[in-house]
Design a protein around this nucleic acid. Sequence first.
DNA 1: CGCTCTATTGATAAACCTCAAATACAGTGG
DNA 2: CCACTGTATTTGAGGTTTATCAATAGAGCG
Lengths: 232, 232
Amino acid sequence: MDINIVIKDSFKQSDLLSGITEEHYTDILGAGNRKILKSKSILFHQGDPAKLCYFLLGGHVKLAKVHELGKEAIIRYIGPGELIAVAAVLKEKEYPVSAETKNETEIVTWDKQTMLNLMRKYPDLAINMLCIVIEHMDEVQRRYLELSTEHVELRIARSLLRIMRHAKYKSKDEIRIDFPISRQDLADYTGTTLYTVSRTLSAWERRGWIKSRREQITITDVQAIVLFAEHE
Amino acid sequence: MDINIVIKDSFKQSDLLSGITEEHYTDILGAGNRKILKSKSILFHQGDPAKLCYFLLGGHVKLAKVHELGKEAIIRYIGPGELIAVAAVLKEKEYPVSAETKNETEIVTWDKQTMLNLMRKYPDLAINMLCIVIEHMDEVQRRYLELSTEHVELRIARSLLRIMRHAKYKSKDEIRIDFPISRQDLADYTGTTLYTVSRTLSAWERRGWIKSRREQITITDVQAIVLFAEHE
DNA sequence: CGCTCTATTGATAAACCTCAAATACAGTGG
DNA sequence: CCACTGTATTTGAGGTTTATCAATAGAGCG
């Protein structure tokens, strides 16, 4: 069962099922619907009534909070083994953000009732979920602090490292970000404009810190960027 | 029992105990330690190992994430009926933020074990907590978006309204913020400098939107500020 | 090979921060 | 009750960062 190995790894990575036995994986996942989505599919729009929550088996999803026409802030990139929108579903609220795939993406979905049943059957689920939400909370807060105190270049560096940590494809010394990401994406993630991102990345490319193609970024000198991010 | 009325109201306000009967209030609060703290007391520093979580009976607390020397971002102001730091305590992590009283403040504290016992005894506690955390998550995300897309004046307006909603003392048409708040505080909350806040508030005072004394702000024309915040 | 979308780069402008100095305010102790 | 001291606040001038606008180049796709 190839899939189950993936699943198990995903779960472990996400801490969602820590403390839950292996045989229950199948039960939990089996209770949901499995689907495959193409790149640039919309899982849900900000403001839609929250019906389903999503678990990623593979691929990447962009979670963004949208403002007036065009402007948006990317809250987080979601990778395999991560769960989206439990919160909203349980509270029967509207989705507070929009979610869009960046890749071909395989997902499992549950509706509220199923999720509640699962949580009752496996009580650790709720506690684990709480922990995950808290982890995310901490990250958003940290980013909030950075956004309000640090200059753009530094923020771009940190953003790159953060995204890298979530979605890296490592080979030799290079680390490639594992899904298509445009200048605009990075700008929305960092809280700046695509122009500034472009200028900054160009400079870094000249220094040999990164390589970039259209919608693709490869970090060639992590050390340099980390130093830059830490020291100044 | 005067205190119990306060407690009950606080809990209701916070949604922490929705679905839990009145007689349990006393049990839950009784399991913790009650204390009264003076203004400017530190509940905990960012980075300290999280030992206790706190529930406010009265007063106000500033939750801030601190950066290098002096710079900080205020995450939230906490009022009566709100809970702080459950997350960190349960996960046995370090506090991700600092907490400082702005007022004389009455609190109840629990340690991890007690909190866990309470959660096992009253299972709705965990779910309610999840909901509260989620609520906060949503607010931080919204503020993150604002910080990355909106200009300072607008952000100051929104900040004022947001703080007002949490800590208002209403009389006739005026609304006074219920605890001492400096320009620097508002700047840290908004992600700007005290100078810019000062200039902005001065302008608004000239227009008759607010009145201000040292560390005190009174909103005299809510309507105007709401319009300003919504329209542009 | 044209069409569309993304990225680059320069010039300009605006928003906002920084620094400096003056003023107001509250509490303290004589 | 008043001078004194330590903060908080105001305001101006100048500078920096970063956004905006505009124009061009490049990449991928049919």
